[in-house]
Simulated scan of single mutants.
Amino acid sequence: MTHKAILFDLDGTLVDTAPDLAAATDYALTQAGRPAIGLESVRSMVGDGARALIEKGFRASGGMPDPAAFEAAFNDFMIYYGRHIAETSRPFPGVATCLAALAEQGYALAVCTNKPEALSRSLLDQLGLSGFFGAVVGGDSLLVRKPDPGHIRGTLDKLGTEFAWAAMVGDSANDVNAAKAAGLPCVVVSFGYTQIPAKDLGGDRLIDHFSELPEALVALGG
């Protein structure tokens, strides 16, 4: 029986999704008559889910529209992004090798992301990563999402067994705060999308490459 679990954020942690998210956001905004905001702006907006991303895009391009226009833009985003979700998105260096090594060592692996579950599964499928994970729990899978610790607990429940130890791996304050509230240590990656410097997020360990993750987990008791 597996007694240790590792939960991973998706965008900015496992996969560099910002280019495809930016393309979809700019498409939705320009369809609504707004200017495109570009990759660097979108990169700093990722992490709170798709609806929040479009809301931030509108606020950055002139303010919120009326509800009907917002819903139309959100639908445009979802359709476009669903069709182009893995055009340029790629796993960060070392991800597949690290996941394979952790699975070989007996860790149960799961994705805990604020990205909608269907989009998360589609992305993981297209990048060949789905087979590593016993559960994929998106921002719309439960009644709560990060930073609520219920998202962490719900993901562990989806793995289907009890664990003596678990940890979160992420790139944002949402990940760190959810993990801490759930009583889990959190490893922060330095290459994600956080607006706050990664070293200042309050994680228990900071890594610059996925090759460093196994050692960080052992240092935390994993």
Rank of each mutant, 00 (worst) to 15 (best):
D66C: 07
D66W: 03
P67I: 02
P67A: 10
A68E: 13
A68G: 08
A68V: 14
A68N: 07
A68I: 11
A69T: 15
A69R: 13
A69F: 00
A69I: 08
F70A: 08
F70I: 10
F70K: 09
E71P: 12
E71C: 09
E71R: 12
A72Y: 03
A72P: 02
A72T: 14
A73K: 14
A73P: 08
F74I: 03
F74G: 00
F74Y: 15
N75M: 07
N75A: 15
N75R: 10
N75T: 14
D76C: 09
D76S: 06
D76N: 12
D76Y: 10
D76A: 13
F77E: 08
F77G: 06
F77W: 01
F77S: 01
M78R: 02
M78A: 12
M78F: 09
I79T: 15
I79C: 04
I79W: 06
Y80D: 15
Y81W: 09
Y81V: 08
Y81Q: 06
Y81T: 07
Y81R: 02
G82Q: 08
G82M: 08
G82E: 11
G82K: 06
G82T: 09
R83W: 09
R83K: 10
H84W: 11
H84R: 08
H84L: 11
I85M: 13
I85V: 13
I85H: 12
A86Y: 06
A86N: 02
E87G: 09
E87P: 01
E87D: 15
T88M: 12
T88H: 15
S89R: 03
S89Q: 04
S89Y: 05
S89W: 10
S89H: 11
R90A: 13
P91K: 01
P91D: 13
P91Y: 12
F92M: 04
F92G: 04
G94D: 12
V95T: 08
V95A: 05
V95Y: 00
V95E: 02
V95S: 02
A96L: 06
A96V: 00
A96K: 07
A96T: 08
T97I: 02
T97S: 13
T97Q: 14
T97L: 06
L99M: 07
L99I: 05
L99Y: 01
A100W: 01
A100P: 03
A100C: 12
A100Y: 00
A101D: 12
